[in-house]
Nucleic acid binder design. Structure first.
Lengths: 335, 335
DNA sequence: TTGTAAGCGTTATCAT
DNA sequence: ATGATAACGCTTACAA
């Protein structure tokens, strides 16, 4: 391996000068710099990042925790994180947890033992062990999409889920729907309660009762969406519109409806959430709420960068713009 | 920060003993070990991985290069890689390239400057710069799905694409199709030529001509699938069956066919490749070739582990089992 | 502008 | 079984 030592010997300067020539060229005579660069070239020197990181105490790496990388909404956020990370000189360690809290902890711990400098959390769980609660308060962490459960101060990048849900509800009501169901993802997260709250508020404003039996919970998956919809259809009376808290859920729900021989939107209207790529391709194209996934990921990384580099952690919640995209999966309520 | 030094002072032993007590308990007296562990507990000591890695010269980290993380087939492979990596004590650095060769190089270089110990490549490109060609031959690298272009010796995990394509072709022919088109992903990779070759061979065996105009190329995306299918439909005569080299392509093709007012499979049969989750949920459910994505990722990581830990690189190609899954997107050829 | 040397926290070698 | 110490490659005061 070619080290700075070798370069310095070849050129006849000290390692300090080599280091400066490479990192702070202006601190060194142009001709010295030239000689160093030439030696670097001929010897094929590469800085040993391991040593550099050790010396500086920084890893220039962040961890991103995600429950399911195959969900395109999450993977787009991760793409945004990574794109921005690269710009800022950071690498991204992947933390796919498959909803396993133990794996969350493994990844979170990386920040505590200097495997990474910061953490981006896409899940709503506090990823550290109880015993690390205190120290965790000082670690640079940002959450995206969903807020971290409990009374913590981490910055949070999201959209206004309450308002988005209001828009969804108004849209459905404008089509004449009064029998509205919903299928949620995570059971008890802020996102879920915001979205449910927005829906309920609008129903209330229109004096439309909310039927608790029509509020299903599961995970953000097609499978859960299908099962929940099947359960709804098996009830004596079922809703004419179902608001799914993710597009994946909606895709599962659509499958269940078609399998039951019903039509969308003539018999049942479906709304999704996230606006993943496939929404435009499915049949019928899905009405959904667009979240700027890439931008959210980028922004999370920017804020994390600030935290890592000295800014104090403060609980800001940053809202990104969302858009209700009306496509063909919603239509007039059946008579 | 709590260091070994502090532990050793508290216990009254040397740092070497602390190190041994933690890593090689059998080299230390049980009572010494006890005291050390207790001090570790009370001081809340955590090993500094940065220092450990620097000292050992290993990062316990691998990079996985992927062109598009939002493609569920790729993200499942990455999940497999990560699951296995965690078992083996490794972390995974994400290298989403968005098809940008410069980003591939950034990620590949991480192995050269000690940011990672090895590399898993899902793309078909040789990710290193020309000037690093020689040194690259010694770096632990494994490719999955697609082989690396050129005359290299890296291990390669895949399925038998030629045979799988033969199965697809036979299936279509058994349904009476003679006008068969295809939409490929990457232009000139081994996977593409294997799949095309398998198709052509079977057609030849059945004395069915292959129409070059019906062989489209683009990327593994829905968008490309849609555009290619639109182009096919705009031809005077178009195929009655189209073999798409990925499910994403197939989803785009299906959209184009429906938009044109045609039915699947009555007017045109569609076959996909990969068997991503959504295949069962789309309308009609997609006939496709299942690739064991998670297993392929796991296996790639296992082999990479062996390379990193001393096994010599040898050009093995390991084939995983595939399955043709016949669903409803393929049917009898129209009269 | 450049050199010297300490320091980062762990592991490993060689004594004891 | 344990201690002393060197070593890993780079950065950075501090000196010259």
């Amino acid at each position: 391996m070619t080290t700075m030592r070798k370069i310095s010997q070849l050129v006849g300067v000290s390692t300090a000068t080599v280091s400066r020539a490479l990192k702070n060229p202006e601190m060194v005579l142009p001709e010295t710099r030239e000689k160093v660069l030439k030696a670097v070239e001929t010897l094929g020197y590469r800085p040993n990042i391991l040593a550099k990181n050790f010396s500086s105490g920084k890893t220039q790496t962040v961890v991103v925790i995600v429950t399911d990388l195959t969900n395109p909404f999450f993977s787009r956020i991760v793409q945004g994180v990574e794109e921005e990370a690269q710009k800022l000189g950071y690498s991204v360690l992947l933390g796919d947890t498959n909803d396993d809290i133990n794996r969350e902890r493994v990844y979170a711990e990386m920040v505590l033992n200097n495997k990474a400098d910061g953490l981006i959390q896409l899940d709503h769980l506090f990823p550290f062990e109880d015993k690390d609660k205190e120290i965790a308060k000082t670690v640079p962490m940002v959450s995206v999409c969903d807020a971290i459960d409990g009374d913590y101060e981490y910055p949070y990048i999201t959209i206004d889920n309450f308002a988005a849900s209001r828009d969804v509800a108004k849209h459905l009501i404008s089509l004449g729907h009064t029998k509205i169901g919903a299928i949620a993802g995570k059971d008890d997260s802020l996102v879920t309660s915001d979205r449910l709250g927005g829906l309920q508020r609008v129903l209330q404003e229109h004096n439309i009762p909310f039927n608790d039996d029509w509020f299903m919970r599961g995970g953000y998956t097609k499978q859960c969406g299908k099962e929940s919809m099947e359960a709804l259809l098996s009830m004596g009376e079922y809703p004419t519109a179902v608001y799914c808290f993710s597009d994946e859920i909606a895709i599962g729900a659509i499958k269940a409806i078609k399998d039951a021989g019903l039509r969308i939107p003539q018999d049942i209207s479906i709304v999704g959430f996230d606006n993943i790529d496939i929404c435009e391709y499915i049949d019928p194209p899905l009405t959904t709420v667009d979240q700027p996934a890439v931008e959210m990921g980028q922004r999370a990384m920017q804020i994390l960068y600030q935290l890592i580099n000295g800014d104090a952690i403060q609980h800001i919640t940053e809202f990104k713009p969302y858009t209700l995209l009306v496509r063909d999966s919603t239509g007039l309520a059946p008579k």
